[in-house]
Design a protein around this nucleic acid. Structure first.
Length: 712
DNA sequence: GTCCCGTCGCCGC
DNA sequence: CTCCGACTGATTCGG
DNA sequence: CCGAATCAGTCGGAGGCGGCGACGGGAC
């Protein structure tokens, strides 16, 4: 508590969030034992070969490895990478096939005061994280759920098995999304709580981490090991853990972190065995165990109770309430009747599939298609219930309630609605640009518009099954456009004869400041999931369109998880031939093949990054020509390579320095959605994109706006 | 004690 | 949002 | 006819950008 930790021990466990992590890495002492992955044959690969054509032996090895994996559950890494090496050699009974698993055995010890023990969750997660097979995971979860019989336990277990909101780290999900409450747990608080609870020092924990193979969770367990002092606190239950975590989210105001730290430490202290690992990972919102609520947990719970797992998923999409779905499953499993879509509760939105050519879009779109503009704003589902109040509520793509934020939109929708009774519409909230929209205050964002494109419910009718053409007709009948409410611009075409128009429609959409087109099958129903009846076509997806840049890699960081052996992300820069400066544009982490990472890392550092030491010091000095405020772990000595990098658009950046002053006094230029396309060995520094060129692209883009053309 | 500024969680894409 | 790799289930291919 | 190779779809997890706002902590 009073001991102020110098550096969070998580330095490498967490992604390098740019401005933060400092300190170029001191510890250079080598780790002797274990780390058998050091001895892996890949190491024999000669340094810096441009994607070696005959990777012969290594591929075979991989094959072999996979088969091994398939046959038997094995320890060692899996998604999380470098998992518990020396942990349980004995497979948990949860790994037995569902038909052979006997829930009665040992079940007594899995209850705490009559409710499910957290041990159920930690055991399931332990077992599931040992394998990559999704079937095996589902098998494990299904077994675990056979220890759970009440709906309230089931709900808590579901949340605790998948407590992270989505793939994007950071947020938690411990209650209905549409009542979402973030926990506001900073890494520092979590780490201090951990040290508090275990009595370990930061250095001790770090040492333990090296011993167990790099995983913080395992290190925590190792450190906590012997000194359990439960006292009268008692074992953890699922409902208890969930409510304790939720309580952390309620703490606010000055001194909040201190209170949270204390509460968390209390929770950690009660953890037994690997429970601590999962509590820690939960608090960090980084589970990395290959389990999601929708795709793994709910289907497993359904299966454990004799309900079709696809039906459970569908039910959750209609009404994303874990509690409701669990109750219905336990109450007999009539999900169609008992878990319904209804106005006021946001269903999962329909999403489009990305598509990289005109022909692909048209061939997949069915006979008749709608070429609709894709507005660059924020997705919104607007609901009005059939009640006296006539209140419009808004939900984000991830179902957060946005009613408060966009009060004007609510008002405008209510008055634009020409019918009576309930409605559910789908649309996009837009401003003159995405950046403009994003900079609105979170509490009350005014001066925005909403562009409607679908209608899911009208009065007493669920319209999801109707073809898009019909939904669209009803949408236009039921709402009047106004200065705030509008309809998405779209053109209905016969796909057989649309080859000509699609390119020009896309061009027009981009000219109008839109991101591109959504090509929609006019006969298709509204699906509460990603669907191929909606195809997303953006100009930067198309090979010949969009801007690709030629940028220079100048530095990088150590990756985490499955990329921990490599440099990732990688900082890239423009080159200014006048001054010789390399101004940073963005970090890139998308688009690289694993082999490329390996070769590049070897080329830059001499080998893949051995856990847990490195970098070697000599690679660690920034080249003075590099202009950035990023603090890379690795700086490349003599940046001269050129890579093709593609992005959706150039942005004015508060963090990157390329072209600073050219479009804004103290902002540089960056890229939205950056990804690596290919190396350009044919190009040299002199051919790299210049800051001036980047500025030109920025200005060109800024000329286009989504603002309503003040006509009609 | 108050104010201001830097971090970082969280959320949008 | 983007992308890649792994897993799965379906389908086709070779013996 | 059956097992092996191939294919397409799904899933998970690696992390990009900008921006608001809550909080902690230093300056005053």
């Amino acid at each position: 508590m009073s001991t102020f930790l110098v550096q969070p021990p998580s330095k490498e466990a967490v992604p390098p969030h740019g401005k933060a992590s400092q300190l170029p890495e001191a510890p250079t002492y080598q780790e002797a034992p274990a780390v058998q992955d050091k001895a892996a044959p890949e190491d024999a690969v000669p340094p810096h070969v441009e994607s070696p054509p005959p990777p012969g032996p290594s591929q075979q090895q991989q094959q072999q490895r996979h088969e091994e994996e398939r046959r038997s559950v094995r320890k060692e890494d899996s998604p999380g990478g470098g998992g518990g090496t020396a942990s349980s050699p004995q497979p948990d009974s949860l790994c037995l096939d569902v038909r052979r698993f006997d829930p009665a055995r040992g079940a007594a010890s899995l209850a705490v005061d009559g409710v499910a023990a957290y041990e159920i969750v930690s055991r399931a997660l332990d077992a599931a994280s040992q394998t990559r097979s999704r079937l095996a995971k589902e098998n494990i979860l299904t077994n675990a759920f056979r220890w759970v019989s009440s709906a309230s336990d089931a709900e808590a277990v579901c949340y605790l098995l998948a407590p992270v909101r989505d793939a994007q780290a950071g947020g938690h999900r411990l209650r209905e999304d549409y009542e979402h409450a973030a926990l506001g747990l900073s890494r520092r608080v979590v780490e201090r709580a951990l040290l508090d609870a275990t009595g370990a020092s930061a250095a001790g924990l770090e040492a333990a981490r090296r011993r167990v193979g790099g995983e913080w969770g395992d290190a925590a367990v190792a450190v906590a090991g012997s000194q359990r002092s439960l006292g009268r606190l008692g074992r953890l239950s699922c409902v208890g853990v969930r409510s304790e975590l939720l309580a952390l989210g309620e703490v606010a105001g000055s001194g909040a972190d201190e209170v949270k730290r204390r509460k968390l430490a209390l929770l950690f202290r009660r953890a037994k065995g690997t429970e601590l690992k999962w509590l820690l990972k939960t608090a960090h919102a980084h589970m990395s165990c290959g389990i999601s609520l929708e795709a793994s947990v709910l289907p497993a719970f359904a299966k454990a109770n004799g309900v079709d797992s696809a039906e459970a998923r569908a039910a959750y999409a209609r009404r994303p309430s874990v509690g409701a779905v669990c109750r219905a499953i336990l109450a007999g499993g009539n999900l169609v009747e008992e878990v319904r879509f209804s106005p006021g509760v946001p269903p999962s939105p329909m999403l489009a599939t990305a598509c990289t050519s005109y022909s692909e879009a048209l061939s997949k779109a069915g006979r008749r298609a709608l070429l609709e503009r894709k507005y660059d704003g924020q997705r919104v589902g607007a609901h009005m219930k059939d009640d006296e109040e006539k209140k419009v509520r808004l939900f984000s793509r991830k179902l957060d309630d946005m009613t408060q934020k966009y009060g004007e939109v609510c008002e405008a929708l209510r008055s634009a609605y020409s019918s009576s009774g309930a409605f559910v519409v789908d649309g996009e909230i837009v401003a003159s640009s995405f950046q403009d929209l994003a900079s609105r205050p979170r509490s009350d964002a005014t001066g925005v518009r909403v562009v409607l494109f679908d209608l899911l419910w009208l009065e007493k009718r669920d319209l999801r099954g109707e073809p898009l053409s019909e939904r669209r007709r009803l949408l236009r009948e039921s709402f009047a456009s106004s200065s705030v409410v509008d309809f998405a611009v779209g053109r209905e075409v016969e796909t057989a004869s649309a080859d000509e128009v699609i390119a020009s429609e896309l061009a027009d959409a981009v000219d109008a400041g839109c991101e591109g087109l959504i090509v929609k099958n006019l006969e298709a129903p509204y699906e509460l999931q990603r669907s191929t009846t909606w195809l997303k076509l953006k100009k930067d997806y198309l090979e010949e369109l969009g801007d690709s840049l030629d940028l220079v890699p100048v530095g990088g960081w150590r990756g985490s998880g499955r990329k921990r052996k490599w440099i990732s992300p990688i900082l890239v820069a423009t080159y200014d031939p006048e001054t010789g400066e390399l101004g940073s544009v963005c970090r890139v982490m998308s688009g690289f093949k694993d082999a490329f990472y390996r070769d590049f890392t070897v080329a830059m550092l001499g080998s893949e990054i051995a856990e847990p030491s490195t970098p070697s010091k000599k690679k660690n000095k920034k080249n003075p020509r590099v202009v950035t405020e990023e603090r890379c772990t690795y700086w490349f000595e003599d940046p001269r390579e050129v890579w093709e990098i593609r992005g959706a658009e150039v942005t004015a950046s508060p963090t990157h320095k390329s072209g600073i002053g050219l479009v804004h006094p103290d902002r540089g230029l960056s890229l939205r959605f950056p990804r690596f396309i290919r190396p350009r060995p044919d190009k040299s520094l002199a051919d790299a994109t210049t800051p001036a060129h980047l500025a030109e692209l920025f200005r060109r883009r800024r000329g286009r706006t989504q603002e309503q053309p003040s006509s009609s």
